[in-house]
Simulated assay, not measured.
Amino acid sequence: MAAPMSSSRDDRSRRGYEVFLNFRGPDTRLTIIDSLYNDMIRAGICTFKDNEELRFGEEIEGSLLQAINESRIYIPIFSKNYASSKWCLHELARIVELSKDNDEKVILPIFYDVDVDDVKLKTNLYWKALQKHKSDSENDLVKKWKKALKAVARIKGRNLKDHGIEMDEIMEQLDLVAFDVRFIAIHGMGGIGKTTLAKAVFRQISPQFSGAHLIKTRLHGKKVLIVLDDIDNRDQIMRLVGSTLRGKCQSTWKNVLSKLKKVMNEDVKKKLMISYEALDPNQQQIYLDIACFFINQEKTTAIKYWDAVFGYPTEIEVNILTRMSLIKIIDYDELWMHDQLRDLGRDIVHGKVATYV
């Protein structure tokens, strides 16, 4: 007789799954999969992860097939050994089949520690794995798997390959065996994944510390992990750390952090205004349009709009904004802008710019 199911699982089964995670367990289960799954559950998104939902007395094919069929969003996580798993490939082929010509089904691929070219079978990584499958699988089935891989590889996804290399470098620098103070600074422009990388390192090493919080009243003699995010000025960092470690109360610490954030934002915006004021009127208008309407939109579409508005070819204006690092052209020829530049533009439009000019 089958064991009774928990009410939470029954509820999820009745209302159906929203997201299906397709992944190779040994490669990703203890890293990205657990983090992604837990974050989705906390956000109230009903997500299927096969090891979580195996039911006694049922065939695994039945449970998986039901979850794939009813899910609306599919997240395949491509890792180095993904293509060696026939079941991963079976799932992917079914996902592609269901998503074809169905606007209600969405595939969001993540390239975890592989390149897009690996999934497109342009390298030996996945190609060799598929060649091995030919020895014990039907040729038509292997062709179906190849077609599915290539189809998903053409979809714009998230490339996290470099994070593995960066994590190894950070772990080496931290040297967790040593009992001393270590500072690691992750720096770079916004949007490149600094916070994502910091969170990944935090999740991996936090169980090894006595404390893993930003606020502690008693730190003496303990091995403690402190993470500070979105801090840019070294002097402000030392003041913040100093006030934290000198036994300040929690409310004082929060007030210092709030003030620090406000001062830094105002200082940054004043400097950004110098670049904005150096633009001619048409360039300023294009900058504001991007900040308000055209982030992550195709450059070609936006340029056609500005050509019509201004009555001349405006690509040269877009190129000027790019050279001034006010915008960036990213994958698929899309316009992109740093969050602070975006906020500055929107504040200008809303008439709030006078507060920090």
Rank of each mutant, 00 (worst) to 15 (best):
H213D: 14
Q285C: 07
I155T: 08
A151T: 07
M264C: 07
S63W: 11
N233S: 11
H187F: 05
R94D: 02
K223S: 12
Q208M: 02
C88R: 13
P313Q: 11
A148S: 14
I165L: 12
K304I: 02
L121S: 08
V349Y: 12
S210D: 15
I215G: 03
N69L: 10
D230K: 10
V227I: 15
A178R: 11
K270P: 02
L214D: 06
Q173W: 10
Y37N: 09
M167C: 14
G193C: 05
M189G: 12
R94P: 00
A93M: 09
E138L: 07
S79Q: 12
D339N: 08
L36V: 01
V201P: 11
I68C: 03
Y356I: 02
Y312Q: 07
N296T: 03
G221R: 00
R14N: 13
P207A: 05
K143E: 15
L141Y: 00
G62Y: 08
N159C: 06
N81P: 04
G62P: 00
N296E: 13
G221K: 00
H187V: 04
F56I: 05
Y82P: 07
C292M: 06
E298Y: 10
N51S: 15
I290M: 02
Q297I: 05
A291P: 09
K254G: 04
A151E: 10
L98I: 06
S8K: 11
L176K: 02
K80P: 01
R24Q: 14
L64I: 13
Y312K: 07
L36W: 02
R182C: 15
L326S: 03
G221P: 00
G345N: 12
A67L: 10
I186R: 07
P313V: 06
S71G: 03
L272V: 01
Q236Y: 14
R154V: 01
K80F: 10
Q284S: 08
A83D: 06
K147G: 02
D34Y: 08
K147V: 01
H163T: 02
L92Y: 09
E104W: 02
C292A: 13
G247C: 10
T47I: 07
D168H: 10
L214N: 08
L240H: 05
G25A: 13
K150W: 06
V19C: 04
R234C: 06
F56E: 14
V241Y: 08
K222G: 07
A148L: 03
Y112T: 01
F202G: 01
D101K: 13
L30G: 00
I75C: 01
D50L: 01
T123Q: 03
D101A: 14
V263D: 15
A151Q: 08
G193H: 04
K261D: 09
L64T: 03
N159P: 00
E334W: 01
I32D: 09
P281A: 13
V227T: 14
I274C: 08
V19L: 07
S325D: 12
S206H: 08
I107L: 14
G247M: 12
K132T: 11
Q340N: 14
L65C: 04
E266A: 05
Y37S: 09
E97I: 00
L326T: 01
